Amino acid sequence: MSGKIVFFEGRNFQGRSYECADDCSEIASHLSRCSSCRVESGTFMVYEQPNYTGQQHLLTRGEYPEYQNTIGFNDCVQSCRIVPVHQGPFKMRIYERADFEGQTQDLTDDCDSIQDRHHMADVQSCNVTEGHWLMFEQPNYEGRMFYLKPGKYRNLREMSNDDTRFNSIRRITES
C-alpha cells in the first residue's frame, strides 16, 4: 500500500496540515477540523464521521479545495482509509437477503443496475473474495457509496444504518 494524502484545516489548502500515508480513524486528533485535502498518490476512502462511519467518498489523485461542492460533504472529513491497489481478478457473490440467503449472483465486473441485469430486487449480503468494490444506492453508480474490501458482509443494511437498497456495484480500479 502506497499513498499520500494531505489534509488542511481550512478550505483551499489553508491553515495547518496533516500528512497521512495510512488509515486514520480520527483526523481530529491531528487537526481541529479538516476542510480541504490533496491526494498526492494512491486512492483513499474518506468518511464524514470518525472511525470510518457516515457518508463516504472515494478520492483519487487530485486536489479537493472544499468538500461541499467537490464531494457533497456538508462539513468536513473525519477519517480515511487507503484503498490498496488490486492486481488480478475481481470476484464477489451477492445475495438477495441477509445472512447469505436467497437468490445469488457472482460478479467479476461492474454492474450498473443489479435489478435490470440480475433481476434481483435487493442485495442484503455479500462475500467479496477478490478486489475492492463500491456499492451504490442508485443505478448507474449514483447516490451514496459504500466501500467493500475482501470479507463477508452478513447484513449490508447495518453498514448504512437505514433502509438503503443497493442498486449498482463498481470495482475500484484506480491506483
Rank of each mutant, 00 (worst) to 15 (best):
Y18A: 01
Y18W: 11
E19S: 15
D22Q: 14
D22A: 12
I27S: 00
I27W: 07
A28G: 09
A28V: 12
A28W: 05
S29V: 02
S29Q: 14
H30W: 09
H30G: 08
L31G: 04
L31P: 03
L31W: 10
S32A: 11
S32M: 09
R33D: 10
R33G: 01
C34W: 07
C34F: 01
S35W: 05
S35V: 07
S36C: 08
C37H: 01
R38P: 00
R38E: 10
V39Y: 08
S41L: 07
G42S: 00
G42L: 09
T43F: 03
T43V: 15
T43Q: 11
F44R: 06
V46K: 09
V46E: 08
V46M: 04
Y47V: 08
E48C: 00
E48D: 06
P50N: 13
P50L: 09
N51Q: 15
N51P: 02
Y52F: 15
G54S: 09
G54M: 08
G54F: 05
Q55G: 05
Q55M: 15
Q55L: 15
Q56Y: 06
Q56V: 09
H57L: 01
H57M: 11
L58R: 04
L59P: 03
T60F: 00
R61M: 10
G62H: 10
E63W: 08
E66N: 14
Y67F: 15
Y67N: 01
Q68F: 03
T70V: 12
I71G: 00
I71H: 00
G72S: 03
F73Y: 06
F73Q: 01
N74G: 08
N74F: 14
D75T: 13
C76V: 01
C76I: 01
V77I: 14
V77N: 07
V77F: 03
Q78A: 15
S79A: 10
C80I: 14
C80W: 05
